[in-house]
Every structure is written in C-alpha cells, then in structure tokens.
Amino acid sequence: MLLTIFWLVIEKLLLIGLIVSLSMVVAMYATYAERKVAAFLQDRIGPNRAGIFGLLQPLADGGKLFFKEEIIPLASSKFLFILGPCLAMITALLTSAVIPWSTPLHLFGQDVPLQVADINIGILFIFGVVSLGVYGIMIGGWASNNKFSLLAAVRGASQMVSYELPMGLALLGLLLLVGDLRMSVIVQNQIEHGWHIIYQPLGFIVFFICALAECNRTPFDLAEAENELNFGYHQEYSSMKLGFYLFAEYINMFISGVVMSCLFFGGYDIPFVNEASWGISQNALAIIGFLVMLTKAFFFVFVFMWIRWTIPRFRYDQLMNLGWKKLVPLALFNMIVTAAVILWLKK
C-alpha cells in the first residue's frame, strides 16, 4: 500500500517536472518564434546570429535578463513586488496539471497516464487558475507604486474578469455535448464522435477570442498599451522579474493552445485514421499522440502570433463593448441552440 503510494508520488513528480520543463522550453522558444514570425510577416528574416538560424537566441536573451541589474523601487511594497511575478509564473504553470497529454504509456508493467491529475472538475480547474492569473498582474501593478502600472493593472484585471464570462458561456454548449467536466472524457468523446469544432464552431470562435483576451495578447493587450501606459503593469520591473512576466505570457499562450486543441480539436487524436488498428506498441502510440497534440498547440500559438502582427490594438471601450455586448450574447445564443438541439435529438 505504502509502496504504491510512494511510486505514485514519484511518477507524478516526474510527470510534473517533465511538463513544467516542457512548458518552460516551449515558452523560451515561443519568444524566438514570436520574433521569427513577426520578421517573416514583415518581410524580414529575424534573429539569425546566435547559433544556426538564431536558435540560441532565447538562451542569450535569458542570460541577458539574468545579468541585468535588479531594481526594486524604494516606494514599492517590497514583498508584494516580488510576489507579483511569482504569482504570474505559478498560475501560468499550474494550468497544465489537468491536461491529458496523450494516451497512457506502458512502463514497468503498468499503465502510466500522461496526465498529472484527472480530477472530475478538470475544465473548471483551468478556469479557476486562469481567474487567479489576474493577481499576478494586479499585485505587481499596485506594488510598483507607479500610476501607469496601476492603471495597466486595473485594465488588465477588468479585461480578464470581463472575458472570463463569455469564455465560460462559450464552453457550456460543449459541456452539454460531453456531459462531463473531466478533460480525459472530453478528449475521449471527440475520438469517438468527431471533433467538437464540427458541432461547436461558434463556441470555438468565442472561446478563441476570449483566450486571446485572457492571455493579454494583441488585439487585447490593453494592459501593455505602450503608447498610453509607457510599458504597462511591468513598468517598474527589471531583470528576471520582468522576464517572469514575459515568460508567463508565453506559457499562458502555449497552455491555451493546448487547452483549445483538447477541447475543440480532439487533443491527441489523429484525424481520419484509427491509430489503434496500426498494430504498433502502446508506447509508440502515446508518443505519436503527444506529438500530434503538440503540433496542434503550436499551430494555435502560431495563429496567436499571426494575429498579433496583423491586427492593431482595440480601444478600451471597443474591448468592453465586444466582450459584453457581442461575445456574451453570442455565447448565450450558442448555448441555447445547443441545448435545444440536444433536447430535440433525445426525444
């Protein structure tokens, strides 16, 4: 009994370590990808000096950030000033806990699920953690004791609170289809009945827009509107604390890509084929599934970047109008139609 618990803890710790380091590495290279994508969309080449194709650029950037001088403003509230970026990072990393990365591996004679925790409130857990992500911004912005930071923090927070609502409503239709909040069940349901994007296109669009807003990405990066707020909520931050904020944004982006592929694009499912009938080993299947999942997530990350370098920033009243007057009614409409259709089909 005790031994199984011990092994379970070891297994989960390993998995957590793996996923956290994966998120970190992906976030690192997302900064590189962002610059490359931006460059390519603007007919440039982008970073290509550090290593071949500039592949060592993220390391150089990280090293630079580490060696920069740490500045903590005298008039700031010191503890909260440090807590801010920590919270941003923690909440960004926490989200990945409930994501089913792939089918179980088969190691040492037992199945090892590639999911840290298959709790029965999976999707709500993500919502909970995302809603806490505001605190990193708010605390950091307030503790800096700078008016621009505070304004940006208030903007970011109100934006995130506003867009959580249509985000949740957009998912309700999907949850009606599945009838379970568990992430693994949501993915399994898609493998059996086809991807949710077919049934819930409107829900996906609303969810996608809200995900952009939740990640503070352009066109909703009002919290970092440098022409109005100088630099946004991390104005007073320097060195790695600033790095944490920027990093957290990229981790959030990656995770939201993963969540979107889990919810709407079948997670680790390969479309149009029945991979179980290939007759390859379970481990190989799991790895293929994982790679498929990553591919989908990276695609969404790319779309995020593509949008950032295409669309200008919204004005603040436009942002609120879009959230409350367009997205909420759309999401409600989607939910009601889905509910009616399900009711009609069941009769």
Binding site: F40, I307, K326
Partner: peptide, 24 residues
C-alpha cells in the same frame, strides 16, 4: 461590427507576406 470578416482579410494579407522573398 464583430470585425471577423475584415480581420480575416487582414490576416490573409499578412500570411502572403510570410512566404514572400525577404528584403534583408
């Protein structure tokens, strides 16, 4: 007013530049 149509047009323009010859 939900912007989606025009955003789609803009995205098409930028993705065309993605594959263009670079001026660097």
């Amino acid at each position: 007013s939900i912007y989606l149509w025009n955003i789609g047009k803009g995205m098409l323009i930028t993705i065309k530049h993605f594959f263009k010859k670079k001026a660097t």
